[in-house]
Simulated scan of single mutants.
Amino acid sequence: DIKGCFEPLTLTASLRPEPIPGEVEVCFANHVRVYYRDELTHENGSCHLTSHRIAWLSNKRKQGSKVPVHMFALPLKRVRSYSPKKKLFSSPKIVLQLLPTTPLQPGVEPPFIMLSFRDGNRDKFYEQLNIAYQNRAWYKQDKSTKKTGGEFTRVVGIKGLMQQEKKRMKEAEKEVNEAFSDLNALMSNAEKMVKLAKRCSDGMAARDNNEEQDQFVKMLGEMGIPSPVTRELAGTKYHEQLARQLADFMAHRLTAMGGMITLPDAFCLFNRARCTEMVSPDDMLNACRMFDELGLPVTFRKFPSQVMVIQAKSHSDAKMAQRIARHIEKNGAVSAIEISEDLRMSLVLAQQHLESAEQVGVLCRDQSEDGLFFYVNMFLSEENDGR
């Protein structure tokens, strides 16, 4: 039974495979068919190859939803062998011989899966599969977990802590030097690099525990994309996959940033997290324009002033206007600079929020030689009070 060959697949909010600990995505292919033995079982889907598994998502969506009708994962540790297959007048395929889950009866052929590539990405996918399978990241991870669980090191006093930290730094330096010596070495050390990035991020978060510090500066310390989407990886689906990864990256950060961020600030954060795999402004903009089409949890917006932002779908201009109004009622008339400082947002966004609140009548302005200040619209307040 084909269902017994696969594991359930969990998706992120933007409908990309949710990575498991230590996992790195290495290749992507679209329009991939799945065969169990010689029988076609799943038609037309996208296939994600990672260091640990093969994830397949149907391109067909459930009625009234963006969720794929079928999706599953095949752990590479369940693959016994693999080989390319090509017949005249048929799409190139990869045959995956699987380890049986139960003892086979005499004369019964071992189970196998075939992946059929209609977009011509078979050779590239096979090459990356070969690298991932030979590296066996899942085996190293299991071995490391068992080893860690069986060890016990007693650290005594400040001297012991310093020695332990010094040892960790030397190990990290060695891992980085080995990983970046060549591409294959980087793939074999991908899991270590992900852990190292997380350790650096956690360390910076621990040192930056000052609530008064600017949130944007904190974000720069985060290294949140161990498997950045690249044009080489995603091919013709580059902007779609980039949009999904960008949405995942920004979704939880927007909550801490008032539900909105300017496109230049998002561009800076996103590229900082991607390290050397930076995206161009045009690619970023094209990806943002696909948010609504793909039904992602964030949306792209352009103000009348031409300021472009990424905002959470849950963001409400009306709620923000009321928040600013309450702040003014408590503290008196404010300028854009004061709102920016008091509500912890960029000056550009503060100006946009004030103007939006003015357009709906919640605020009114007073422009003089002293500058531009905003007040609560008392006429609207009196109307609402029934006076």
Rank of each mutant, 00 (worst) to 15 (best):
D1M: 10
K3E: 14
F6I: 07
E7G: 10
E7V: 10
E7Q: 12
L9T: 03
T10E: 11
L11C: 08
G22K: 02
G22D: 04
E23Y: 02
E25T: 15
N30D: 15
H31E: 08
H31M: 10
R33T: 06
V34Q: 04
Y35E: 06
L40Y: 11
H48D: 11
T50W: 01
S51R: 03
I54H: 02
A55I: 01
L57I: 06
N59P: 10
G64H: 08
G64V: 05
V67P: 07
V69K: 12
V69Q: 12
R78C: 05
V79K: 03
S81L: 06
S83N: 14
K87I: 07
S91P: 07
V95R: 11
L96G: 00
P100T: 03
P106T: 09
P110H: 10
I113G: 01
I113Q: 02
M114Y: 14
S116I: 04
F117W: 05
R118V: 03
D119L: 09
F125G: 01
Q128F: 07
N130A: 15
Q141H: 13
Q141E: 13
T145M: 14
T145W: 15
K146A: 11
K146P: 04
G149S: 11
T153A: 11
T153M: 08
V156S: 11
G160R: 09
E165P: 01
E165A: 12
E171T: 14
E171K: 14
E171V: 13
E173P: 05
N177I: 15
E178N: 14
A179S: 13
A179D: 06
S181W: 07
S181I: 08
A185Q: 10
N189C: 05
M193A: 05
M193P: 01
L196T: 06
A197S: 13
A197C: 10
R199Y: 07
C200F: 02
S201K: 07
G203D: 06
M204V: 10
N210H: 10
N210V: 13
N210R: 09
E212Y: 07
Q213D: 13
D214C: 09
D214Y: 06
D214S: 07
M219W: 03
I225F: 00
V229T: 15
E232Q: 13
A234V: 13
K237N: 10
Y238M: 08
Y238N: 04
Q241R: 06
D248T: 12
A256F: 08
M260E: 02
A266F: 00
F267Y: 04
C268L: 15
F270M: 07
N271P: 01
R274D: 05
R274V: 12
T276Y: 09
M278L: 12
A287T: 13
D292A: 08
D292G: 08
D292N: 15
G295F: 06
L296I: 09
V298Q: 01
F303S: 01
S305K: 04
S305E: 04
Q306Y: 15
M308F: 04
V309S: 00
I310Q: 00
H315E: 02
H327S: 05
H327V: 02
I328D: 00
K330T: 10
N331S: 11
I339D: 00
S340L: 02
D342L: 03
R344K: 15
V348N: 01
V348Y: 00
L354E: 00
E358N: 10
Q359M: 09
Q359C: 11
D366W: 09
Q367E: 15
D370S: 11
L372C: 09
M378I: 14
E382Q: 12
E383M: 12
N384H: 14
R387C: 06
